[in-house]
Design a protein around this nucleic acid. Sequence first.
DNA 1: AGAAGATAGTAAATCATCTTGACTATATTT
DNA 2: AAATATAGTCAAGATGATTTACTATCTTCT
Lengths: 169, 169
Amino acid sequence: MISIPSQKTPPPAEANTSQVDKDAFAWRHHHIGRLLFEVQRDFQFRSLAQLKSLGYTDISRASISVIASTSLGGTRLTDIAKNLDISKQAASQMVKDLVDKGYLSRTPDPSDGRASLVTFTDKGQQFLTHAKLGVDEIEARYATWLGESTFASLREVLLDLLEHTQANP
Amino acid sequence: MISIPSQKTPPPAEANTSQVDKDAFAWRHHHIGRLLFEVQRDFQFRSLAQLKSLGYTDISRASISVIASTSLGGTRLTDIAKNLDISKQAASQMVKDLVDKGYLSRTPDPSDGRASLVTFTDKGQQFLTHAKLGVDEIEARYATWLGESTFASLREVLLDLLEHTQANP
DNA sequence: AGAAGATAGTAAATCATCTTGACTATATTT
DNA sequence: AAATATAGTCAAGATGATTTACTATCTTCT
């Protein structure tokens, strides 16, 4: 959620309070979490828009997150749930939705009678291919804006940071 | 949503398909949007945990986003909605919730009879102060992991990128 | 001044996503 | 074999958001 501070709507009324905002509470607009959020949001927005333009009007953010945590070899519902940090019931619903829409399917897990594997249908795999087109385009645009090397190092830094965050939960 | 690829649960079954996953679809795990999302998510998680430990158990992600788009000088509901890119009705509900919880209040806008300004209560301002503590701690931790200068340049790069994204919607 | 249209907000119904609690069926451990 | 753990479902409900429709106020343009 936390989103782009509206440059369009300048702080209203009292110039005094507005001053306080700029000083003591300026951190609210510049802290790393917010910056990350805003850029990520821009990415998501552009990606979703591209998918829509390719005809994927039935794919939501939540759908994408489920698809993102499904591997081609098949993934158990429980693992999707753990991965997204949601309940198995929630994962079950979302998967059901994507199965109904034709992107995913479920097959019994041969190695465990209780479990079933969530896999991609042909339509689902085609979606992945289309999604990559959009992602590539956005990355190219970012790289143009930042310069190739800065963009590359941004990726490295994030990767590095992620390793630390995963090691220190 | 889109979350950390589960290192705990290695790709199951067919080594073949898993190979495909690693090659043709490796981008799913490394593209910039995903990296941004995961780091941002870590930040959010840590921040929320700290707020909980300080006793803020009634603050959700959505609450934070509303608080983040409210300025000390007062913000109109419409501006909050625009800012978060949600409907006025949705914003209204969330603000009502935070007013009920004592963090925000609404006062009539002296300059416009239709509008009212959403402002912080004392409790709300205290919350901001507490939130800053947590943010500072997380940033310090990230800086330790990355090195001060890399962390500083990460912030610069994100800021730079944001300027471009905002200029090219 | 007065009508037309824009803007701020509310009301009610509904949808999408996610949660908790209770349960079944299969696996694993002892 | 009994006890326990794991994979998943069912059902009810909370939260966050949307759409459609509406009122009240403000702005603009004759």
